[in-house]
Design a protein around this nucleic acid. Structure first.
Length: 180
DNA sequence: TGTGGATCTTGTT
DNA sequence: AACAAGATCCACA
């Protein structure tokens, strides 16, 4: 269904914690629940599910972009997200190390309805022993759902972990498997 | 079923 | 430069 176009965020913005960066934030109601989003130049920068609590909603964003210029508009963000969803290959700013990018690219190869084990992913990126690190890298991804981290499960068939909550992971997998 | 060691990356000190 | 903590895995009891 969805392929994502990775645009690496310029290093200077990461280094300076978002100084001189104009970031628009707002909440959207998705199929899987309330999510906070952040945008830069109309391009998605962050999407994370949360419980509606302001503190947890800001936590990740303020930590990484401490010095950014913030503005807030739910209406605008809802519109941006609508457009985002309608694109054949939507674009998103990506922030991460080389290794993390590799892992995220790898998980994006797994088609909807499928799952992979963390160890299979490790093989796919040619670092078969880096199994544990794969899990960490997946958990560091900033674009929930669109970087389909929920498709990574343990090799014994159990669910493993999920940054946004295990019940959500289970729900996503069941929706993708059955279409319900 | 559970525990311990192996293994790799990252953030923190 | 060293260390501890992870969304793991495998062997072995």
């Amino acid at each position: 269904m969805h392929e994502l176009n990775f645009i690496p965020l310029p290093n200077v913005h990461i280094k300076n914690r978002g100084a001189q960066l104009d970031i628009l934030t707002g909440d959207i109601e998705t199929e899987f629940g309330l999510a906070r989003s952040a945008w830069c130049d109309d391009c998605l920068l962050f999407l994370g599910f949360y419980d509606g609590d302001e503190v947890s909603g800001w936590f990740d964003l303020k930590k990484r972009f401490t010095h950014a210029n913030w503005s807030i508009s739910n209406d605008r963000v809802v519109e941006l997200y609508r457009q985002f969803c309608h694109q054949p290959k939507p674009s998103a700013w990506i922030i991460g190390t080389e290794f993390q990018m590799e892992v995220w690219q790898a998980i994006c190869q797994i088609p909807e309805g499928n799952t992979v084990s963390y160890s299979q992913l490790a093989v796919n990126i040619k670092k078969p022993k880096a199994v544990r690190a794969i899990g960490s890298a997946l958990g560091a991804n900033n674009i929930a759902y669109w970087v389909p981290c929920h498709r990574a499960v343990r090799s014994d068939g159990s669910l493993g972990g999920y940054r946004w909550g295990l019940s959500l992971k289970a729900k996503m997998l069941s929706v993708e498997a059955t279409g319900l």
